[in-house]
Design a binder for these strands. Structure first.
Lengths: 203, 203
DNA sequence: GTCTATAGGACGATAGAC
DNA sequence: GTCTATCGTCCTATAGAC
């Protein structure tokens, strides 16, 4: 348990406190999105006052970026482990087919709806030009598209188009699933869609 | 031009004033999302004070629902006209194939990115349980899925699964397109995806 | 029916003491 | 590293003028 029901009065080391703040904020943003997030709620859950919280993250936007950076690192680490690859790969796993990589990604996402909701909500929220995470998600979209495209280059007529369609289906299915978790089987829907998308891919 | 740069002092009929308010709010929500929307900004753009604005829409949530209802009506009307059908159909056009209906929808969406962004942002924002538009989008998702499913029943093995994939691709492509309008051709990407999704559909 | 004036409560952020 | 005090802005509600 990293939260505190009332005021702790404990003086934590900076790194440990920061980790606690990121964990709490990840949970709260996943529940209500970034705009609904109150610094007061985060501070309360950490046993801090609001200025105490701001001392660590600078601003509400700074808190958001800290959460996103931590999730990115966590995702890369976890996916590399799941695929039996070394954790030294800074970005995307090498030497694996796009269908296999996507399936691993979807299977992992299906086990953590709160994290998926955090990304789904923020990805759409950040379509607004001035959003604090706009540049983060723009860069992320460019990076993922480049990785997906590279994995099917020379194997299909239009690799970039297939890459976009794969991204679109994964993101779109996540939204359908989050709004109706019991009526939608994320993994099954993805595998069905993948069968159609990757039909003409030589494996 | 339905906005006012300063205070108008004009006394408009209720229906006309309401229409003006909805138009202004539609634009502002499309630019920054619902959470970033300030009632003060809406009132200013309409030449009103904030309580004057609230008299017409009741609350900020009421304003949001008024915007969504108006867009729904507008979309149905426009799509029916585009497909050469009567405007008496309350819901979805009858007697038309799913691929044709989707193509018409995508072609129309490609001409109005601001409206598409409004729906994309709100759809994701409303994944948060307490969001004022949560029930609206949940109902909308059920309705669209039922309509899509009905249009391919008895023509594919798993009509509901295909319906979900079609919804997912359309929503997902819109997000990719909105973040990179110049690098993404929404209609072309949809047609390419549709070719894969509807491959085994007897037309 | 339509609007102005005003006030309450919550939020993000800053300055400065300990 | 954490606190108290304070500011400006926002949404909402009420009372009452036209």
């Amino acid at each position: 348990m990293t939260t505190a029901s009332r005021r702790d009065r404990t003086r934590l080391p900076a790194a440990q406190r920061r980790r606690q703040i990121v964990d709490v904020a990840t949970r709260l943003i996943g529940e209500g999105g970034f705009w609904a997030l109150s610094m007061q709620d985060v501070a309360d859950a950490c046993g801090l006052t609001v200025p105490g919280l701001l001392h660590h993250v600078g601003s509400k936007d700074g808190l958001l970026l800290a959460v996103l950076d931590h999730r990115d690192a966590e995702n890369v680490r976890s996916l590399a482990g799941q695929l039996g690859l070394g954790a030294d790969a800074v970005g995307w796993p090498q030497g694996i087919s796009l269908p296999r990589a996507c399936e691993a990604l979807v299977r992992r996402n299906a086990t953590q709806p709160e994290i998926v909701r955090l990304f789904s909500v923020l990805q759409a929220e950040s379509l607004a030009p001035g959003h604090p995470a706009a540049e983060y998600f723009a860069e992320r979209q460019r990076r993922v598209l480049a990785e997906f495209t590279a994995m099917v280059t020379d194997r299909v007529p239009d690799p970039e188009s297939l890459g976009r369609q794969v991204m679109a289906v994964m993101d779109g299915l996540q939204i359908l699933w989050l709004r109706d978790p019991d009526g939608t089987d994320l993994v099954a829907e993805w595998l069905a869609a993948a069968g159609r998308l990757f039909a003409d891919l030589d494996r």
